[in-house]
């Protein structure tokens, strides 16, 4: 395990070095990703310019959700966002080269890039976090503080699992890559707002089946001490780490069987 981490660190440090080589263009890229992601928060601000509350959530509470999901998502985007380009690996036969190296396939695909410039998104999320905390009155117990950290980490794990599972679609059709966007970017967009606002079927599919509700909504109910308008069991508010682990396991199984199929059927 430690050896794998060491090799990973080496592989991505090469990427990072070459990305940081051009300072100016890196700074511009960073600014670019910051701005594009900030667009979503501008939407939040405009919405709250029209109403004082959204389904019982105030601006700062929604900002809290927004920041949490953005940081979770953006960190995952930096590390495995290049899975969006995985179809190209299949199409160009680069994946075959991965199969002849003595490391796990998913490991190698993930280690093939590390998008430093997307840290702009992370920064945006952090800034909104600060804004949110500034306007919230939270009774910060040790439990709540710990839960906040767990929320962001578990949220990241859930996004990562969805991203990996979604990327396997490239083994079936090389052009269908965009299909996954609905879950990854869509999931991020969806969780910026309390999931109680969405219609029942959308909730069932995108928030429970694909466990987006656990990315920040449920934990936030506990942290912000809000009653659940949906009236669901309190235990769910603490379930995100379990859900994250389960999601990771499922994603791993999906990836492995997809690779098995590829080795059986070819491309």
């Amino acid at each position: 395990m430690a050896d794998a981490l060491a090799v990973y660190a080496r592989l991505i440090s090469a990427q990072v070095r070459s990305q940081l080589q051009y300072r100016v263009s890196f700074a511009l890229d960073l600014a670019g990703t910051f701005l594009i992601s900030f667009l979503d928060f501008i939407a939040v601000l405009i919405i709250f310019d029209n109403v004082p509350e959204l389904d019982g959530w105030t601006l700062h509470e929604v900002a809290f959700l927004y920041a949490s999901t953005c940081v979770s998502f953006a960190v995952v985007d930096v590390v495995i966002g290049h899975l969006d380009l995985f179809p190209r690996m299949i199409r160009e036969g680069t994946f075959d080269l991965i199969l002849v190296r003595p490391r796990g396939t998913l490991f190698q695909v993930i280690a093939s890039d590390f998008a430093m410039r997307k840290l702009g998104k992370v920064l945006q999320g952090v800034i909104v976090f600060v804004f949110a905390l500034g306007g919230l009155e939270v009774d910060w117990t040790a439990g709540r503080a710990a839960m906040t950290l767990v929320m962001v980490l578990a949220g990241a794990a859930i996004f990562a699992a969805v991203w990996v599972a979604g990327a396997t679609i490239a083994f079936w059709t090389v052009d269908g890559g965009e299909f996954t966007n609905a879950f990854t970017y869509g999931g991020n967009f969806m969780t910026q707002y309390p999931i109680s606002i969405y219609g029942e079927w959308v909730r069932r599919f995108l928030a429970y089946l694909i466990p987006m509700a656990f990315v920040c909504y449920f934990p936030s109910l506990y942290i912000l001490d809000k009653p659940d308008p949906l009236g669901l069991p309190r235990a769910l508010q603490f379930a995100s780490p379990v859900v994250a682990v389960a999601a990771a396991v499922v994603a791993g199984v999906i990836w492995r069987s997809a690779v098995r199929r590829y080795r059986s059927v070819g491309s």
Partner: peptide, 17 residues
């Protein structure tokens, strides 16, 4: 598929107003 999902999400968000 993507446009449809995003359409649903956006519709509910704005309906919340």
């Amino acid at each position: 598929w993507t446009n449809t999902i995003f359409g649903f999400l956006q519709a509910y968000i704005l309906l919340g107003l």
